[in-house]
Simulated scan of single mutants.
Amino acid sequence: MPEVWMPQALQMDIGDHAPYDPGFPARAIAHITGDLEATAQAPLDLVPFANLKGFFTGSGRSKAPHILWDPFTGAFAQFFPATSRSRAVFDADGGFRPNRSGRVVLQVEALFFPHCRVNGQAYVRLVETPCKGWDVLNAWFSSWGIPNTWPMGRPTSLSRNTCPDEKWKSEGGWYAHAQVPENKHVDPGTWPKFPSQPSEPPPVGTQFEPFPGASFFQAGRRSPIIAAMHGRLVAEDCDRYTSSTGIDVWGPGDVRSYTAWQLKLGLEGSAADGIPGRFSWDRLGVPRV
Rank of each mutant, 00 (worst) to 15 (best):
Lys167Asp: 08
Asp273Gly: 06
Leu46Lys: 03
Gly205Val: 10
Cys116Ile: 04
Arg288Tyr: 12
Val180His: 00
Arg240Met: 08
Gln207Cys: 08
Gly94Asp: 00
Ser86Phe: 06
Pro188Thr: 04
Leu36Val: 05
Pro43Ala: 07
Arg288Cys: 13
Thr83Phe: 01
Ala18Gln: 07
Trp250Asn: 00
Val47Cys: 09
Thr190Trp: 05
Thr162Met: 05
Asp16Gln: 02
Ile146Met: 10
Ser101Thr: 02
Pro252Trp: 05
Cys163Glu: 02
Ile32Lys: 10
Ser215Thr: 13
Tyr175Leu: 04
Asn99Trp: 06
Ile226Cys: 00
Leu44Ser: 08
Ala77Ile: 01
Arg125Glu: 11
Pro65Cys: 12
Leu52Thr: 12
Trp144Ile: 02
Val124Gln: 14
Leu267Glu: 05
Arg256Ile: 00
Glu268Tyr: 08
Val118Gly: 03
Ile247Asn: 11
Pro81Cys: 03
Trp69His: 06
Val4Ile: 14
Glu37Ser: 10
Thr33Ser: 13
Ala178Ser: 13
Thr245Ser: 10
Ala50Thr: 11
Lys193His: 14
Ala38Cys: 03
Met152Lys: 12
Gly153Lys: 09
Val4Asp: 14
Ser215Ala: 15
Trp150Asn: 04
Pro210Gly: 01
Ile225Cys: 02
Trp144Phe: 10
Leu265Phe: 13
Gly23Gln: 15
Gly251Asp: 00
Val286Arg: 06
Phe112Trp: 12
Pro147Lys: 02
Gly213His: 07
Asp135Asn: 10
Lys167Thr: 12
Ala88His: 10
Gly253Asp: 07
Trp261Ser: 10
Glu268Leu: 14
Gly172Pro: 08
Arg160Ala: 15
Thr149Trp: 02
Glu3Ala: 15
His177Asp: 12
Ile247Met: 09
Gly220His: 01
Lys184Thr: 12
Phe112Glu: 04
Phe49Trp: 02
